[in-house]
Design a protein around this nucleic acid. Structure first.
Lengths: 288, 288
DNA sequence: CGGGACGTTGACTCAAATCAATAACCGTGG
DNA sequence: CCACGGTTATTGATTTGAGTCAACGTCCCG
């Protein structure tokens, strides 16, 4: 139905694609907007037609920019299908990838307070978005309270997901960074009702590396390391997680043992607890 | 005009300086809430008393937690005075600092969609916050449209600031990371009407290191490196930026020359442009 | 005074950036 | 059809930046 290209040998079958509406996506912004945009269920359900006209659907072919950093912002977008790469681009043209956005993600919201987009968004595959002009947003919120509620939920989610990203980037070793990223991705897929164990990464190694803050060669090596350890099976962008629990355990490894840190000067009970799990966590599971 | 204490024994009584309302803070959420909480101007200005009762003021002494990760969430907070450290804490007790929050920052918003806080917030100095119970939020938004608008502005800002953080953490070298952090901090101070060149960091080296994703010794070394280069003057937590422009230039240095990256497969004009500023950018300005 | 937290600096080691070579893939066009 | 340039992915060799361990000084508080 959607990507007749792919041509993928591995991990095809069950629509590796991030498209396909998730009926399991209980009441996300995307689902709500879908109802608004296409009068799908209950066509007589008292939804103001004005609200419907406020929501427009837009196709974005692979490789096309939905918004350019620095360009004036017109609308708020919500990803319906596909994947986008969100990035900052500094004046020398060096690109810092900030996130990858899939179904339900809010785009351009960070432009609300400015006249221009701080970030750019480019489609990594053929995608579609819902668009709502800034000028229509207030009215839509007032007419469809559910939308406003979901908008806030989505915002809250976006915020905590960005925090997760910081967690990932703060990880000590490149393998842990990658492991955390894959787990996060897996979890997001699961939340959308897709397979959390088998998926196709929509971005290249360079973009991934940029987001993780490492060199792209390092991402490559980290992949093979995790694969050699039996946690993953990797074939280019096709990833299968073989040992989800093991990966999770591995992703928690820190180089430094946790120093029982008191928050400030606050002295509390025990200075004890030391000597948590140390040792290179990949040494053991290696099938050598 | 500002730091009357300085040299202080670090955050004692007199509400260290990041307090002092910024009259320059044109219409931030904080200012708006301040009007609501204290009926400052135009007491008869038709502000619903219900709205006033929804906003409560709360003191948080230095070192005290405003919210604990994992604890149930009751309210949305907006920082009025002081500074907070926002962090994730993994199950082994290892703390990952995510951000530092100053006046106007939204706290606990990421708990909106969950029952429990994903992050914890601890005051780094004596601080005060506005608190709004989740149950009161909807009503307040409806009664005070300005508040809702400002809330959205603040959210948008928070989102793009988190993106900036990712930019910082993605920086190649530890010195650049620190430089970018200091510039960001400087800019935020300036936006609040305080000196962008001279300030006191409210967090310790370890917290800073955690947020930058480096070892605390490395932060120490990065400080002395920047100071030796003549860009800064550092004395413990007191920082003075001597060469703002130089620091800005330095903060842009990337190790890799920018690869004229085409976003996807999109081929555009020039493959040219190469050989931008290379070479260790600190070697030159050293006053040896 | 001693204990504790913090900050700085040095020495050593290692993980990852860098440089480099190879292979696979894609669309284009002879 | 295959050859071609372009992009991407993997792997290897080498170098170096930063993590780690450790020592030391300071300040604060009890």
């Amino acid at each position: 139905m959607n990507h007749p290209h792919d041509s993928a040998p591995a991990a095809h079958g069950t629509t590796a694609s991030s498209g396909d509406f998730s009926p399991a996506g209980r009441g996300s912004v995307a689902d709500l907007l879908h109802v608004l945009a296409t009068g799908a269920p209950s066509p007589s359900s008292g939804l103001p037609t004005a609200a419907r006209r406020a929501v427009c659907l837009r196709r974005v072919p692979a490789g096309r920019y939905l918004m350019h950093a620095g360009a004036p912002s017109e609308a708020l977008y919500v990803v319906r299908t596909g994947t986008f790469k969100i990035a900052h681009t500094d004046e020398e043209g060096y690109e810092q990838v900030l996130a990858f956005a899939a179904r339900g993600a809010l785009l351009a919201y960070d432009a609300l307070c400015m006249k221009h987009h701080p970030t750019s968004a480019v489609a990594l595959e053929d995608s579609t978005v819902f668009g709502i002009l800034w000028s229509d947003l207030d009215g839509l919120c007032r007419q469809v309270p559910d939308f406003e509620r979901e908008l806030h939920r989505a915002l809250s989610l976006a915020l905590s997901q960005t925090h997760d990203l910081l967690d990932i980037m703060a990880a000590v070793s490149s393998e842990v960074r990658l492991a955390r990223f894959l787990l996060r991705h897996s979890g997001q897929l699961a939340a959308r009702g897709q397979s959390p164990r088998r998926f196709v990464l929509r971005m290249g190694r360079r973009d991934l590396a940029s987001m993780l803050g490492v060199a792209h060669e390092t991402v490559s090596r980290a992949f093979t390391t995790l694969a050699t350890a039996g946690l993953l099976q990797v074939n280019d962008r096709h990833v299968e997680i073989l040992d989800l629990e093991g990966l999770r355990t591995f992703s928690r490894s820190t180089r430094r043992p946790p120093e029982d840190v008191s928050p400030f000067n606050t002295r509390r009970s025990g200075p004890a607890r030391r000597a948590a799990a140390r040792a290179s966590p990949l040494a053991a599971p290696l099938p050598g």
